[in-house]
Every structure is written in structure tokens, then in C-alpha cells.
């Protein structure tokens, strides 16, 4: 029994060491093009600029003090906070990268090596994010400092903890949703159109484009249920809207607890879906090439 226990402990430690090595290699890879990476980080703030001007123009032309509960300052703060959410949940190139590995056969090395492919991808993505945060912290801090006047007072300790939890869950959700999408490559040769369709839906329903609350007046045909109510049950809103709304104090109490529970449930669902897709996909996969 003790031998088995020691074996398990040794196995776990070896897996952890392997994961740590994968993480270190991935970090070094990411730092090769650091100039391009830093420039790309700065560029990501540019669309926010046009959004701020657009909403400022909208507010100047309407007699309403707020739109769906958002003042002009709230809107600016909201878009900036969704940048933080997206910094955790967006997974550029993950789904298409997996599909490409399946298509060109390079995935077969993971079938013969004692490395868990999904864990390898997760380590690579964690490395990408760590490098991204290390580089992005400067422009993020500068922009948030310049725009500090738009923000309400920060949330209390519980609100802050909920914000951080929602960010971590959004990272996992974004990762496993995209990884599952990429595994469709086992069934279809080309998934780029599916990925693009997913991006469309994601962009619209995540709150990246506008706060989900703005859909509250749009009927769905179901009595007492608005489009915002329906979107609240989908996984997309946790990748942009959720953390931003928590920071702004728009969600609290029982509503906040329910949101985090639904988000955690979606993470579990997507982990299971990803593992299932990998298990079923590798069973039907036939490799070719040298």
C-alpha cells in the first residue's frame, strides 16, 4: 500500500515537474517576439478609444441620464474592465492551432509521448498569459490611472474576491471552450469557419461589444423573459461582462453567488466536454505523414 502511495506521490511530482518544464519552455518561446508582443498589447486599447468617443456622442444627443443603468462614466469604466476580463478569457489561436495539429498530423507525438496534450496546452496558455500580464501591466496601469475618474470606488473585500474568482474561472472557461472547439478537427478537416462563427456569437453575447444589461428591454417571446435573461444562462457573458459587472457593483448578494455558481458549472461542463472530445477524437484519429 505504502509503495503504491509513494508511487502515486512520485507520479504526481513527476507530472508537476513536467508541467513546470513545459511552462518554462513556453515562457521562453513567448519572449522571443517580445517587441511584437508589447506593441500588440498597446494596440488592443485602440478600439476602446473609438467606443468611448461613440458613447460620449450618444450621451450628448440623448436627454437620458443613463442608458440601461449605465452613466457615460460607467460605460467607459465598463469597456476598460472588459479589457481585463478578455485578458484572462481570450485564447487567440488555440482552437485553430489544435485543429491544424490534427490536420497536419503533428498531434501524433502527443499520442506516443507520456505527456497529456490538454495539460500541455494549458501550460502553454498559462505561460502566454503570464508573459502577457508581465508586459501588459504597464500599459494597463497607465490607461487605468489616466481614466481613474471614470471608475466608481473599488468593491469591498468580498466583491474583490468575487472579481478575482470570476477572472480565474473566465480563464478556465475560455480555455476549455476553445480547446473543445479545436477538437472538432478530429471530425472536420477545416474548422476555421466554425471558429469564426463562435467568435461572432462570443463577441456579441459576451458583453464585449456592449453591456448585456442593454438587452433587458428586448423581448424573446417567452413571457417575462428578456434577451438579457436568456444570455445570463449562457457561458459567453462570463468571459467579458461578468467580471466587469462585479467590479462595477452591478451584481451583488444572491445574484453574485448565482453568477459564480453558474460560471463554475460551465467550467466543469466544458472540462468534461473537452476531455470527452479528446478521448473520442483520438480513438477515430488516423495519422499520416512521416
Amino acid at each position: 500500500m505504502s509503495g503504491t502511495g509513494a508511487g502515486r506521490s512520485g507520479g504526481a511530482s513527476a507530472a508537476l515537474r513536467a508541467w513546470g518544464t513545459m511552462l518554462a519552455i513556453a515562457i521562453e518561446e513567448r519572449l522571443v517576439y517580445r517587441g511584437d508582443f508589447a506593441l500588440g498589447t498597446l494596440m488592443r486599447f485602440l478600439p476602446i478609444v473609438t467606443q468611448v468617443f461613440l458613447w460620449t456622442a450618444v450621451f450628448s444627443a440623448t436627454s437620458r441620464g443613463d442608458l440601461a443603468g449605465y452613466s457615460r462614466d460607467d460605460i467607459v469604466a465598463y469597456y476598460l474592465l472588459t479589457m481585463v476580463s478578455r485578458a484572462f478569457s481570450s485564447m487567440p489561436g488555440l482552437a485553430t492551432g489544435i485543429a491544424r495539429s490534427i490536420r497536419d498530423g503533428s498531434i501524433k507525438k502527443f499520442l506516443v509521448q507520456p505527456v497529456d496534450y490538454i495539460a500541455f496546452l494549458l501550460a502553454t496558455r498559462v505561460a502566454h498569459k503570464l508573459v502577457y500580464y508581465a508586459v501588459a501591466i504597464v500599459p494597463f496601469a497607465a490607461v487605468f490611472f489616466l481614466c481613474r475618474g471614470f471608475f466608481p470606488p473599488p468593491p469591498n473585500a468580498a466583491g474583490m474576491a468575487a472579481f478575482l474568482v470570476s477572472l480565474l474561472l473566465s480563464f478556465l472557461l475560455g480555455f476549455f471552450m476553445e480547446a473543445t472547439l479545436g477538437m472538432l478537427g478530429f471530425w472536420f478537416m477545416e474548422v476555421s469557419s466554425v471558429v469564426f462563427g463562435y467568435m461572432l456569437v462570443q463577441y456579441l453575447l459576451s458583453g464585449h461589444m456592449f453591456p448585456i444589461d442593454m438587452l433587458a428591454e428586448i423581448p424573446t417571446g417567452i413571457p417575462g423573459t428578456s434577451l438579457a435573461d436568456l444570455v445570463a444562462w449562457l457561458p459567453f457573458q462570463f468571459t467579458a461582462y461578468g467580471p466587469a459587472a462585479i467590479w462595477l457593483g452591478n451584481i451583488h448578494g444572491a445574484g453574485l453567488a448565482r453568477m459564480l455558481l453558474v460560471e463554475a458549472a460551465w467550467v466543469v461542463v466544458m472540462i468534461v466536454a473537452c476531455r470527452l472530445a479528446w478521448a473520442r477524437g483520438t480513438r477515430r484519429y488516423s495519422a499520416f505523414g512521416g
Binding site: L54, A57, V58, F59, S60, A61, T62, R64, L67, A68, L204, M209, F210, M214, L215, E217
Partner: peptide, 15 residues
């Protein structure tokens, strides 16, 4: 769809 949504809140873009 986004622009249509914007015009549910305002009659014009910029006063």
C-alpha cells in the same frame, strides 16, 4: 444589430 441597439437609446450620433 449593435447600431440598431444604439439608436434605441438616441435619435442621433452626437448632438
Amino acid at each position: 444589430a449593435f447600431y440598431l441597439l444604439v439608436f434605441t437609446f438616441t435619435p442621433e450620433i452626437g448632438k
